[in-house]
Design a protein around this nucleic acid. Structure first.
Lengths: 220, 220
DNA sequence: TAAGCTATTGGCCGCGCGACCAATAAGGCT
DNA sequence: AGCCTTATTGGTCGCGCGGCCAATAGCTTA
């Protein structure tokens, strides 16, 4: 990336440099795994010396925690933007349908891997642990808002939006448990599981959450 | 454990020593995590020099993989013994009920952590990866047999025992995703999730899988 | 009892890691 | 213009790791 052959130094404002470091670390964590975030690795990506990264993050665990938060937040905004959760013009069904479709596709495998990674690493890293719990609740809360707005619209039948949000996320996390260890025997039974579960949980008609407008297609 | 102050050597038959090493590694992996399995750590537990462990496992990854397999197999036998899956005397409902109860309790948190650990580590370790997939399918197959025998008994209504087994395991893995990052807000909505899901999946009456004989208690 | 096989030791190597620190130079200030 | 703050360098330290190997000593066999 940033070619640094000679000795020319680039001096940046502390805040800008800090953001740069977090962004690089987040990218590494998301793509290669959180344990690949090391002072030297991040420094290499930025074309600086490792001591500089250590200067901004005296304890590497803090960098890892911050990187995870940044990555998770970014991905949440890509999967379920906050603007879409309140009084969505297309309706809550549309929003939820999109979320499930995006989450199930292989395009967001990196996200599933990140969560698996973070939840395991939380076992050893207290700082990360705290951030992971916070993000888990944030994701649930955003789903909860979609559900709640669907209830207001009258399209969802659900007594406890928070409980439903938690359970739908658990179903998602369950199927995503296998991103690193996929087996062909398991894919078929799981393809529709989350969607079906969500439909039951929210009192929707069968296939109501099928992507696009395919609902009426294959069931004559 | 094995006190080794002086220089006395204990020479054992290769196979016995090998088993000893795997058992020690499995214990470490289950309790402290798979990444804590190192030549030195295992050697210390056995009161032996690290070179010896390296002699039996020239590549550490093979030891980790074997340790995981041993631990996972042992836990499966504790949670759902193979003998209980075929023509169970107490019936499939009883067997499944027991499995779900054991799996949900905090007594088997180590097992949940182990799975989380193994699934994440599979990302980097090919040998482990292969073992993890194999174990996942083994666990599913054992659950499938319980379901199939329940169908034979006529107590389960289920078109695809394998598919149901896979989905029930996914629901279990979903709720177990949070063993390292538990949050009080999430516990209540999740307590009955797996059980309820399994009841729907197998066409059982509501609360049919409640532990013990509490089924008829709170619903007059 | 003596010999031979081999399980076991003890020690070494290079690696990447986090962490520390004095020296240096970039860029805003007067 | 020169100064002065501080972002950045470049290097060092100790650690635990996996891997390797010659020497040693325990058990079995002849």
């Amino acid at each position: 990336m940033t070619s640094r052959g000679g000795g020319k130094r680039t001096r940046k404002a502390p805040e800008e440099r800090r953001d740069e470091i977090v962004a690089a670390a987040a990218r590494i964590g998301l793509i290669e795994g959180l344990e690949r975030i090391t002072l030297r690795r991040v420094a290499d990506d930025l074309g600086v010396r490792s001591g500089l990264v250590g200067h901004y993050f005296p304890a590497v665990e803090d960098l890892v925690a911050e990187a995870f938060t940044s990555a998770a937040l970014g991905e949440l905004d890509a999967l379920l933007p906050e603007e879409s959760t309140d009084r969505a013009p297309d309706g809550a069904v549309h929003v939820l349908r999109g979320f499930l479709a995006r989450m199930s596709g292989t395009a967001f495998d990196d996200v599933s891997r990140l969560w698996l990674n973070a939840r395991h690493l939380s076992r050893y890293r207290p700082v990360l642990h705290e951030r992971v719990v916070r993000q888990e609740l944030l994701w649930c809360r955003r789903v909860e808002r979609v559900i709640a707005s669907g209830v207001e619209e009258g399209v969802f039948r659900c007594e406890d939006p928070w409980g439903s949000a938690v359970r739908v996320m658990a179903a998602i996390d369950g199927t995503n448990s296998y991103t690193n260890t996929s087996a062909p025997q398991r894919s078929a039974p799981l393809t529709a599981m989350v969607r079906t579960f969500a439909e039951v949980e929210l009192g929707l008609a069968r296939d109501a959450l099928l992507p696009q407008g395919v609902e009426a297609a294959g069931s004559p």
